[in-house]
Amino acid sequence: MAFRGPKVWLWRWRRNPLKRRADAVEAWAVLAAWVLTVLTGVLAGLTTAGTVEHTMARERVEWRPVVALLTERAPGTADSRAGTASGEHVWAKVRWNAPDGSTHTGQARVRPGSGVGTPVTVWTDAQGRLVTRPATESEARSRAALVGGLAGVCAGFVPFVAGRAVRRRLESRRIDQWGYEWARVGPLWGGRMRG
């Protein structure tokens, strides 16, 4: 077991006669990488979450429910004994009128076995195209937090990896310098030990 002394805070920035320029550069590079990682992650996460939540709020305002009518009989049977649970839905062709009066058709989820002319509520955008039901405020907050968190982690990963690369390069240079100094001084030091 190796002996460890007491933990010294901010040891990278303390004065030390053995500290080289590369050690100071590494200390600042590590600090800069951590600060950039945190700032980039937080800013990207907050920006993305705000954008997602704003987009979903706009969808709640612009998207409208419309009553559509089935144009064909829905596949399946309405009998739950036939293996179709009452909560399941199937795709069927429906027709609805857009706000400008034009007629549109598309596919919507309906109860199995529904007949032609059965009314179904669908959601449309401002142009009358089919869309999914907009997210509620709580769903939008949850999705925004999830997407923002993921974006923040991904964005913060970039400066973190860059900082690791800089640190690895500095460490490689430091090891090369140690090798060079040892090759120069080592034979002299070893000769004194024999003499």
Score class of each variant (00 low, 15 high):
P6T: 12
P6G: 13
K7A: 13
V8N: 08
V8A: 09
W9V: 09
W9T: 10
W11G: 15
R14H: 12
R14T: 08
K19H: 06
K19W: 03
A22M: 09
A24L: 14
A24T: 13
V25T: 05
V25L: 14
V25P: 00
W28Y: 11
A29T: 03
V35L: 08
L36E: 10
V38G: 04
V38E: 02
G41R: 00
L43P: 01
L46H: 03
E53P: 10
E53G: 04
T55Y: 12
M56P: 00
R64S: 12
A68S: 00
L69I: 02
L70H: 04
R73T: 11
A74K: 04
T77Q: 07
T84K: 09
A85Q: 13
V90I: 10
K93Y: 05
R95I: 01
N97P: 08
A98H: 01
P99D: 08
G101V: 02
G101W: 00
S102P: 07
T103E: 11
A108W: 00
V110A: 01
P112F: 03
G113R: 07
G113M: 05
V116Q: 05
V116I: 11
T121F: 05
T132W: 00
A135V: 00
T136E: 12
A140M: 07
R141W: 02
S142H: 09
A144K: 03
G149N: 08
G149S: 07
L150E: 02
G152L: 15
F160H: 06
A165E: 08
R167Q: 09
E171Y: 14
S172G: 14
Q177E: 10
G179R: 15
G179Y: 15
G179A: 15
Y180H: 15
E181C: 07
W182F: 09
A183R: 13
G190N: 15
R192L: 15
R194E: 13
G195K: 10
